[in-house]
Design a protein around this nucleic acid. Sequence first.
DNA 1: TGCATAAAAGCACGATCGTTCGTCATCTTC
DNA 2: GAAGATGACGAACGATCGTGCTTTTATGCA
Lengths: 200, 200
Amino acid sequence: MRKGEATRERILESAFELASTEGLAGLSIGRLAERNGMSKSGLFAHFGSKEGLQLDVLELATARFRDRVFTPALRADRGEPRVRALFNHWLEWIDDQSNPGGCMLTAAAIELDDQPGPARDMLVDVQRQWAEMLARAVRIAIEERHFRADVDPALFAFQLYGIVLSYHHARRLLRDPRARRRARDAFEALIQTAHPRPTR
Amino acid sequence: MRKGEATRERILESAFELASTEGLAGLSIGRLAERNGMSKSGLFAHFGSKEGLQLDVLELATARFRDRVFTPALRADRGEPRVRALFNHWLEWIDDQSNPGGCMLTAAAIELDDQPGPARDMLVDVQRQWAEMLARAVRIAIEERHFRADVDPALFAFQLYGIVLSYHHARRLLRDPRARRRARDAFEALIQTAHPRPTR
DNA sequence: TGCATAAAAGCACGATCGTTCGTCATCTTC
DNA sequence: GAAGATGACGAACGATCGTGCTTTTATGCA
């Protein structure tokens, strides 16, 4: 009972790494078994099916994202500081060494957008929640009068998401060293448009 | 000589469709042959290798992108109109029915970001050119005094790219019907930040 | 220490993968 | 009409895929 749980986690760990660079579809039971020094069938028994394995990996990815981005940002002060914290942790998450292939959720979003099934459903759920979380943080910033009252929280979340995606693109595909600075500049510009107009 | 060229193009056409939804790695010679009512070996002979096929598909994708987005935008007036045309054609391209799985280049950008090889190299080239093209259009808008002189063309391109990526995400994964409007709003907001400040 | 049980291995299966090879039909060109 | 090039086919290859079974090994508790 105990041992099984441990190896299962070890497998999931390396499955996460593999899927991070190769994609969820690139996860192969055979290679995964080889990496973990065990037999295909022995590994397979832990998940019941390849789809089960993919779902578990996706679940692990969202749990980590929660722990590294979502939760720590909640410790920041309400309003603009929290919006900033969300953005900063998000960028750090993308660059984190435990994500050798960039953000798995972003990769999965492209990979699964035309692949109906439980994996896609789970991912859509997570992404909707995340977008809602971003919008909520913006709404709070409006309440705190850090942002103007006419700021559209959902639109702000949309724009924020865009900056992060563009960063992901520039950083991971183009390997552009200026990506980070651009992301920060874009973020500051976005924040600026949301700030109250100077009283005159 | 003539016949071969024709079937080759027919194959590439359906390969493009297949790769659009399944990804470049999801391209399978067997299924592709089945779809085209011909044998695996007969089809295979046209490309020499799977990698060759992928490269040809990628090439087709960039050619189409050029024809549908790049080139028509050049017919718009220099300056802000051209920037708007680039954006509009880009959005239309994403929604185009000939792209059943969304923009192939975007999907490939995620799929190949950790897969070194000629396909990745070609894609990086195209994407760099595209970013440069966007920046150039912005630079022209500055020259035309449509945009302020202190606008950073590369940053503007980065932001524009972000809006489109966010649109892709909201539209294709989340199936959010408000995606289009959000993209337009974000674009107008971006344009606004680039406009000359009102004289007072 | 023994035993029930959980975990892993071993083996095999049908499919599908990309690829090679030899052959045949069709068409062009002399 | 003969000769040669072109295009497609069928069969087969070694590998790998996911997934069942049965057997062996390891583990945790009485």
